[in-house]
Design a protein around this nucleic acid. Structure first.
Lengths: 144, 144
DNA sequence: TTAATTTATGCAACTTTGTTGCAATTTTTT
DNA sequence: AAAAAATTGCAACAAAGTTGCATAAATTAA
């Protein structure tokens, strides 16, 4: 079993496990996320799929992946929405992501720092927290 | 001197201090920020100014305020860009904001938690941090 | 394996959001 | 009060995202 073959099995499994039809676009987009250790913007996906799929399909695929909890959005200071794979038991639409995200100001990539957990903070009385997200901007390893 | 009168003096001073012409739109938009303890999206501003100013003017005003360091953007998990007043000595375009932002999932408001500082985190080797931002999602004081 | 059913895709048309150039207006300077 | 500088609003555009619907593909049932 080759690496790509194994990858395809994994991809199919994720889709079926989430009760999604296995289609070319979904397989390809999911593969992109699996082979990228960072986060992807809608535009990145359109470019990397080589305009093989309609813009609308990409939008709808991301939407479905969000609903199923396969991916989640990452906050950025600029106006770009970035998506990243959910790790582990992220089966609901609601995602509680507890690692720090790093946005490189040089290459623009967003990297999930899996090993860096978001520290807890104390909030003033009356604020009921549901999710903590932390974004660090700076220069990444590749761009030093 | 009435409150509104004092406010106007304050507003004029901020604009002049930043070498900006004192115009109706800038005064009004700055007033909005001063009277709101949270962050504002472009759309909020358009609504609250009662469509008195052209969309382009609002965009350009926000842009200029950003350049002058009067306001800064706040990261959000959705695709909306939100702006908030810079406190204290934020005279450059580059802004290092060190307080936590709270986004209410009920009313949608973004509140600057001035008293809650962003905790430091250790990054893996090779990552050069420039700015740390933290966003907490949940239910705010008003919406409990 | 094929037919029936369900689901996803792609197209077109549209809305929303943001940008640019330029003439007219307003603000600031002299 | 006039000249110079800066800002505004308009129009036209570009980019980003959404919706309805017929076609095509994937899944289920026979």
């Amino acid at each position: 079993m080759t690496a790509s073959r194994m990858n395809e099995t994994q991809i199919d499994h994720i889709l079926k496990h989430n009760q999604l039809s296995v289609t070319d676009s979904r397989k390809k987009i999911l593969e992109l996320f699996l082979s990228s250790n960072g986060a992807l913007a809608h535009g990145d996906i359109e470019k990397k799929t080589g305009e093989k799929f309609d813009r609308v399909t990409v939008y709808r695929t991301l939407q479905v992946f969000m609903e199923k909890g396969i991916i989640h959005t990452i906050p950025t200071a600029d106006n770009s929405v970035r998506y990243a794979l959910c790790k582990d038991d992220c089966t609901e639409g609601h995602h509680h992501d507890n690692h720090v995200h790093f946005v490189c100001s040089s290459c623009g990539n967003t990297i999930c720092l899996e090993d860096v957990t978001v520290p807890d903070v104390k909030l003033p009385k009356g604020f009921q927290p549901e999710e903590f997200q932390m974004v660090v901007t700076g220069v990444c390893r590749e761009c030093q």
